[in-house]
Write a protein that binds this DNA or RNA. Structure first.
Length: 427
RNA sequence: GCCGGCGUAGCUCAGUUGGCAGAGCAAUCGCCUUGUAAGCGAUAGGUCAUCGGUUCGAAUCCGAUCGCCGGCUCCA
């Protein structure tokens, strides 16, 4: 009989208290709890573990994030592609996933109707599609770098013990991109990615650090590739002034990588971005480009995500903000609270004006006393509550209550719209 | 996947030694016509996760499966 005892040890009472406070705070911010309270998403036992279903408000936040990031990527020379969710098993044999990753993938047979069946695999990553798109036409060194991005939903049969809300799901969407480039472009491309990491995390106020993972024992490629690639990663981090640690031997079997870990509002760290150098997949898929000497060379491929998984990043944001999203990301930015039934007409009129200005707005139409409407709106963490009664219908204004600041008095509709749009990176 | 725990109404939970399934909140309907964080009344809501076993009798005991939680391992 073996008895396992769990414990935790701290140097001082103060440290222990801080730990306990953090546990308590983490429980209050738990994205699974807030996700239900704010009607963002749900999980269903009958659907399967780790498969989130996004409700209208959750979908809205995710789409806003994507819309924003898409614009940022276009400005930085990315092109967007869309690739299938399934491929014939042959593709996964070429990529090596069939051999090395099989137990984590979903495969199925399909009846082709002529007495034969085909085996298909659901994608656990987006790389093959991007490789095939690259390989579809002859490339010149002048075409490089090609920055190919996709919000690609992938499926991985994660082990049952690790599935955890949105943080570790079996279906998730990566803000994925693959950069095809020449060896001498790796450094500047990595610099560009670190710049993007800094910009994106800055928007949410996240601090972060990095880890560089070097060549593992079981790996492929010649040492010159590993040295060049690893040095390019380290040099970029140094030049950007990103603090980093070296994780000896923790790289992917095909190349070294940078992992970014960010720190949330209560000091927890999360891995989000990853930047990987790859020489293997371009080879497997036979990718080439024509050099200035008109010889044929194989391009490098950089894999990178910035948010990582939209699911995980969404979960991190929910916990970081404790559900009180910044106004630009809030699923509902404004809720109109009519004082009595007779104010519904004016409330509807205000809503129409706000909708026309692109504000996400709802009217609280339940027949409840004021304080209850306010309490419920507060609980939904809506940034602005507009109280409309006789006074407001008369003046054409709205009584504004802020989520954090309370009642701030009357404002005109235009003033209110300006407040909502202030600081909106999508505006 | 492994170790440990858990699964009762939409949510949070009670349910005594195995003996009629409960509360609050949410929902629905009615009342109130409301001025900034929780009014009043009523109604409805359940194969006690699922399947099997023990028993005169199972939410309660046993087994399996599914799901969830904490940890390990893994990862975006």
């Amino acid at each position: 009989m073996l008895q396992r005892i769990y414990g935790t040890a701290w140097y001082s009472d103060k440290d222990l208290d801080a730990y306990l406070t953090r546990i308590e705070e983490a429980e209050k911010r738990d994205h699974r709890k807030i996700g239900r309270e704010l009607d963002l998403f749900s999980f269903h036992e009958e659907a399967g573990a780790g498969l989130p279903l996004y409700h209208p408000k959750g979908a809205r936040v995710l789409r806003l994030l994507q819309q924003w990031l898409r614009g940022v990527l276009y400005e930085r020379g990315y092109v967007e592609v869309i690739t299938p969710h399934i491929y014939k098993a042959d593709v996964w044999k070429i990529s090596g996933h069939y051999e090395n990753y099989r137990e984590n993938m979903y495969f199925f047979e399909v009846d082709e109707g002529d007495g034969k069946t085909s085996e298909y695999g659901i994608k656990p990553m987006n790389c093959p599609g991007h490789l095939m798109i690259y390989g579809d036409s002859m490339k010149s060194y002048r075409d490089l770098p090609i920055r190919m991005s996709e919000f690609g939903t992938v499926y991985r049969h994660e082990m049952s013990g690790v599935v955890h809300g949105l943080m570790r799901a079996r279906s998730f969407t990566q803000d994925d991109a693959h950069i095809f480039c020449m060896p001498e472009q790796v450094h500047s491309e990595v610099m560009g990615m670190l710049d993007l990491v800094a910009y994106v995390n800055g928007v949410f106020g996240f601090e972060y650090s990095a880890e560089v993972s070097t060549r593992p024992e079981k790996s492929i490629g010649d040492q010159a590739f590993w040295d060049t690639a690893t040095q390019a990663l380290i040099k970029a981090l140094e030049e950007k002034g990103v603090p980093f640690e070296i994780n000896e031997g923790d790289g992917a079997f095909y190349g070294p990588k940078i992992d970014i870990k960010l720190k949330d509002a209560i000091g927890r760290t999360w891995q989000t971005s990853t930047i990987q150098v790859d020489y293997n997949l371009p080879q497997r898929f036979g990718l080439t480009y024509r050099t200035s000497d008109n010889t044929e060379e194989q391009p490098y491929m950089l894999h990178r995500t910035i948010l990582g998984s939209m699911e995980r990043f969404f979960g991190i944001l929910i916990e970081h903000y404790a559900g009180a999203f910044p106004t630009w990301l809030a699923p509902v930015q404004v809720i109109i609270v009519p004082i009595a039934d007779r104010h519904m007409d004016y409330a509807t009129e205000v809503r129409a004006k706000l909708e026309k200005a692109g504000v996400r707005v709802e009217v609280f139409s339940d027949n409840e006393p004021m304080r209850i409407k306010i309490a419920k709106a507060q609980q939904q963490k809506v940034p602005y509550m507009l109280v409309v009664g006789d006074k407001e219908a008369e003046s054409g204004e709205v009584g504004v209550r802020e989520r954090t600041g309370g009642d701030i008095g009357s404002r005109s509709i235009d003033e209110l719209i300006a407040m909502v749009k202030d600081g909106d990176p999508l505006a």
